[in-house]
Design a binder for these strands. Structure first.
Length: 648
RNA sequence: GCCGGCGUAGCUCAGCGGGCCAGAGCAGCUGAUUUGUAAUCAGCAGGUCGCGGGUUCGAGUCCCGCCGCCGGCUCCA
């Protein structure tokens, strides 16, 4: 029998019988954990025939691409189970996601969470049956016959440029799919369906609303358990829960959804954020301004937003004149700029304001502090000359980065949102201007050596932008800092400066929010720290816990002394055992607890304990005060005690 | 806005197919206890069962509408 040689990356050439599959090649090369193979740039099924003299690489579960294939096959098993259990469902699409998969379908009857156990059970049966997945190429005509009655698949078939389309089969189930797939359903040992949700066909709200079933699949049950445990842990960090439990803020239906009430604790942290923000802006050459919450609608007609965002604005009349609750601060800042002539010598001019704005967000989009209807933008507008643009953009990016890092954010993604060349009519400004502006943003990021993703077609109508995407506890992405170039406003409002030549020139204008909004930023900050704020932000930095009633007067006296030294300290005066008070302090997520008893009183120390249980030992008062003062001044993540503190 | 789910005390939740089902724990208050690093004990108080209709002799429970929340989609100047 003829043999062929195949070169396997990482283990060299192997010989297999002609007609052998890549699965045979993997076996010959003693690669045991292969899920899929890579041939050139393409991932191919292990069941594909090996080719004489070719080089292939085998990918295991450790490779992200192979995991995606693994989950994609899981989505086929889901689709199979759906068609088995609910005859008449029309399948749409079912890809792998970052940590799972989903399948979109048009159900014959509404599907709910209660259907998931049944579906899961059927999926396990299908996996246990270890059905082979077979790749099959059919003509379009045949495909149309196969998917007759399913408008979604037919639409996809029609869009495939090739004459042939690929169909994968497992048992009596088949699906339109490019693959690749695992060799058989038996590979998918552990799976879980997590949610059923709605999703528009092709992501367009003008299309049918389909039902999406989400799931995840792992190799081993332990991995699934770990995944589910991580989600549970993340839920404990949810800012909505923490916000209520720690009495930081509230939002209630009877006061209006999406409208935030800042309670003393939350307001304290917010105030610290604002103080820091203002100091830093002034340091960097910004001038603080303040503008009203309402304005004549005309202002936003001029800006071009009124028409575009009318449905999202709160409008009313004053003396029969249309007004709006301001949805943004830009026209106000432009108005201040325009109140007199400006020379090129004055530029750049940087205005900043913690400006509260109101936007009528769709009800289904509200989400705790992260998406609200009334919020305070840490807004700023820079008016500059074309020559100053890149320097100013750099200043913004640098400030955003500095603020994020100071608040402890180390993971975020940077995106450059560019225009969609296919829709030039949707944008203000000429193609040439856009190219220059996008170039300026790219140059900025290059100069600061900041890695970023270019997002084509994600720009706003008035200009390209740089966004910092931050993540909540569950890994959902939210826009944080944003730096936007604007072609539109300077033009519409006639924002000019007098140049060296004595003539008027159009200003370049940058919109920028360095935190995004105080609400959203606070929400993510809260989740990031899991409710335990660093000492410079924490409303209470240190709680003194008297071991018994006798120690209370001394603890109160001590707290007074600490407060006089600028520390934020309180005392747990309640009855009960020390352990109970420790527990209360831990649940209140106060960063430091200090136990006071006879021993400490006599030694002039505090038995310090960090949130979470770390024992920092007895710390002399002077050292304690100095350490907290320094931590606050440095905006440090933790209080640093000099070595030896624990021994005193 | 759309799809699905949910809405009982400040919080977490129980309340089977409508009838002594308005309950528990925590938190709160009062009292006892004085405690050395994640829950001392007892008592008291606390709810228009989201809102509005309807069905029924009778609705927290069934039906309809609305509002809100949760998950997702869409949107996000």
């Amino acid at each position: 029998m003829a043999e062929i040689e195949v070169n396997v990356e990482g283990s060299g050439p192997v010989r297999v019988a002609a007609g052998a599959t890549l699965l045979d090649v993997a076996a010959a090369a003693k690669v045991e954990d292969a899920l899929v193979a890579r041939r050139g740039d393409l991932l191919v099924d292990l069941t594909a025939p090996a080719r004489k003299g070719e080089t292939v690489a085998f990918l295991s579960y450790e490779d992200e691409e192979a995991r995606a294939v693994f989950r994609h096959t899981a989505s086929h098993i889901l689709a199979h189970a759906l068609t088995d259990l609910y005859p008449g469902v029309k399948l749409a699409i079912g890809p792998a996601t970052a940590d799972g998969f989903y399948y979109d379908l048009d159900p014959s009857a509404p599907l709910s969470d209660e259907d998931l156990p049944r579906l899961e059970e059927r999926m396990r049966e299908l996996a246990a049956a270890d059905l082979a997945l077979e790749r099959d190429e059919v003509s379009k005509r045949e495909a149309r016959k196969l998917f007759a009655g399913n408008p979604y698949k037919l639409e996809l078939v029609d869009e495939i440029p090739d004459k042939k389309v690929v169909v994968y089969r497992q048992g009596d189930f088949f699906d339109l799919c490019l693959g690749p797939h695992l060799p058989s359903t038996g590979y998918v040992k552990t799976l879980k369906l997590t949610a059923v949700a709605g999703a528009y066909w092709r992501g367009d709200e003008r299309n049918d609303m389909l039902t999406r079933v989400y799931g995840t699949a792992y190799r081993k049950p332990e991995e699934l358990e770990l995944h589910l445990a991580r989600i549970e842990e993340a839920k404990r960090r949810d800012h909505r829960t923490l916000g209520r439990d720690l009495a930081l803020f509230s939002i209630a239906e009877d006061r209006g959804p999406g409208l935030v009430y800042w309670h003393p604790g939350g307001a304290f942290v917010r105030d610290r954020v604002e103080i820091f923000w203002k100091e830093e802006h002034v340091k960097r050459g910004y001038e603080l301004v303040a503008t009203p919450h309402i304005a004549r609608a005309r202002l936003f007609e001029t800006s071009g937003h009124f028409h575009y965002f009318l449905d999202h604005m709160y409008t009313f009349e004053v003396d029969a004149i249309p007004y709006v609750l301001k949805p943004m601060n830009c026209p106000m800042h432009v108005a201040i700029y325009k109140s007199r002539l400006h020379s090129y010598r004055e530029l750049p001019i940087r205005y900043a304001e913690l400006g509260t704005v109101y936007r009528k967000e769709r009800s289904g989009t509200l989400h705790g502090l992260l998406r609200v209807r009334g919020f305070t933008q840490d807004d700023g507008h820079i008016f500059c000359t074309p020559e100053q643009l890149v320097d100013e953009l750099c200043g913004c990016v640098d400030l955003a980065r500095y603020l994020l890092h100071t608040f402890g954010f180390t993971s975020y993604d940077v995106e450059l949102s560019a225009s969609d060349p296919k829709r030039p009519q949707d944008y203000a400004g000429t193609a040439e201007e856009w190219a220059r502006a996008e170039e300026a943003l790219a140059e900025t990021l290059a100069r600061l050596e900041l890695p970023y993703a270019r997002m084509e077609g994600e720009a706003i109508f008035y200009g390209p932008k740089i966004d910092f995407q931050i993540y909540d506890a569950l890994g959902r992405k939210w826009q944080g800092p944003t730096i936007q170039f604007d072609f539109n406003l300077p033009h519409r409002f006639g924002v000019k400066y007098v140049g060296a030549d004595g003539a008027e020139h159009q200003c370049y204008m940058i919109h920028r929010a360095m935190l995004g909004s105080l609400e959203r930023f606070f929400g993510t900050l809260l989740e990031h720290h899991a409710g335990v704020f660093p000492p410079w932000l924490a409303p209470v930095q240190l709680r003194l816990i008297p071991v018994n009633k006798d120690a209370v007067p001394y603890a109160l006296e001590l707290a007074e002394k600490l407060r006089a030294a600028g520390l934020r300290a309180d005392v747990d005066e309640s009855d009960g055992k020390l352990a109970a008070k420790i527990r209360t302090g831990e649940l209140a997520k106060i960063p430091y607890l200090g136990v006071i008893g006879k021993r400490e009183r006599e030694a002039g120390t505090v038995a310090l304990r960090r949130h979470g249980g770390e024992d920092l030992g007895p710390v002399p008062l002077e050292r304690l005060i100095a350490a907290f003062q320094k931590a606050a001044a440095d905006k440090a993540a933790a209080v640093a005690l000099e070595s030896g503190a624990a021994k005193s």
